[in-house]
Simulated scan of single mutants.
Amino acid sequence: MENLVDKIVSEVLNRQGRETTTIIAQPGISRPNYQREKGKERLLGITAPESGNKPGPSFAPQLNPSGTLFTVSMKPPVKINTGFTPMEENIEVKAEVRKSEITEKSFGQAKFIGVSAGNTVGYVIPNLEPDLGQYLQVNRNLRAIGVISSRIGAAVQIMAADEAVKKTNSELIRLELARDELGGPGHGVFALFAAEDVADVIRAVEIALMATEEYYQNIKNTPAGKIETHYTARAAAALNKTFGAPLNQAFGIIIGAPAGIGLLMSDTALKTAHVTPVSFWGPSVAQAFANEVWLTVTGDSAAVKNALEAAREVGMQVLAEFRA
């Protein structure tokens, strides 16, 4: 038994050979054998008689019954709970708005072009089924159909569609607003491009997806509501078809949600600058009962910009009150 104890004590002492231990001499035990004998006592359960030493002040080291300072602990260090949990270094934080991914994969006979901000998807059907064409009221000569569909946005995608028709030989043939926005106050959108040449429609969808990314930056969305303002120096066919915007004129869109914020933004815009209102939408069937107000305006380029800036500023002020 003693041989086994000697062996264990030796191993422990070897592992902790670098530790510094203060030794208080006791009669009958030579200094070199002191640690070995005290190790045996601990393992065999032998308790040494208590010394008459009284503990010193709380900041001074306390002597244990063996006469040594307690400098080695076999317990793991206690973790102090600071209330702060550091993030792992490898965690990747993804931004809400990601860059457009133009891929042009094929799914069946359709060409999948890519995705963009606002959960927007774009694809092309090279040869639309004639029966669907009748339901969608598509001209038989325009068999190539490009689709832009989203869950968030509407105005963003409409502005993007206008950029697409400016730069391609295609046209916006259908636009519908859906009550969606992932449960928010606004819309999703369902927009169709058409052209005789498939290449024109593919290019139109590509441009629309990239422009969606840019216009999406104009949305300020909070749990309390949202505001957005959009500007173009030259309105084209898509904005003309959707809102009645004068072609080739400066044009702006003002949106506020809930609807009361949109009304205040609209009133501020018209009082700030000399602009002409083109259309006004409130919660209605045409708006899919979205809790928003839309005002579109036209006029001199500088005046339209001033109107949008003033509307955005007052909208931000109201949203700040919601947060307060």
Rank of each mutant, 00 (worst) to 15 (best):
E2H: 10
A154H: 13
A25Q: 10
G114F: 07
L177I: 03
E37H: 11
L142V: 05
L270H: 01
V156M: 01
N291M: 06
R151M: 06
N53Y: 15
K54M: 14
R312V: 07
I46V: 11
E171S: 13
V97S: 08
I91W: 09
G114M: 04
A178S: 10
D131V: 15
K99A: 14
H274R: 11
V278C: 06
G183N: 03
G108A: 02
A288I: 09
N306H: 09
I173P: 01
P65Y: 11
V198H: 08
T212D: 04
E171F: 08
S58E: 15
G183A: 02
A161N: 04
E96T: 09
I145D: 00
A320E: 11
G188C: 03
G153Q: 00
M159D: 06
L270A: 02
I102D: 03
L43R: 05
N306D: 13
F251P: 08
M159F: 10
V293E: 01
E171R: 07
D180V: 10
I24L: 13
A161T: 10
M265A: 03
V138Q: 00
K111S: 08
T296S: 07
L172M: 15
R143W: 12
Q35I: 13
P57M: 13
P77C: 14
Q35R: 06
P86L: 00
A160R: 00
A245E: 03
E104C: 12
G133A: 13
K94I: 14
G133N: 07
N119Y: 15
F243Y: 10
P277E: 05
A236R: 03
V12R: 09
F280N: 11
Y123V: 00
G183M: 02
G28F: 13
S106M: 12
N139Q: 08
A144R: 10
Y135T: 10
N81S: 11
K271S: 05
Q26H: 11
V275I: 03
T71R: 10
I254A: 02
V297Y: 00
T47S: 11
N141P: 11
K75V: 14
E181M: 01
T298N: 01
V278D: 08
A160P: 02
N291I: 05
Q217L: 10
S106F: 13
A257K: 02
I219V: 03
G118Y: 02
Q109L: 13
T229K: 00
S106R: 13
F280M: 12
E213L: 10
E214K: 14
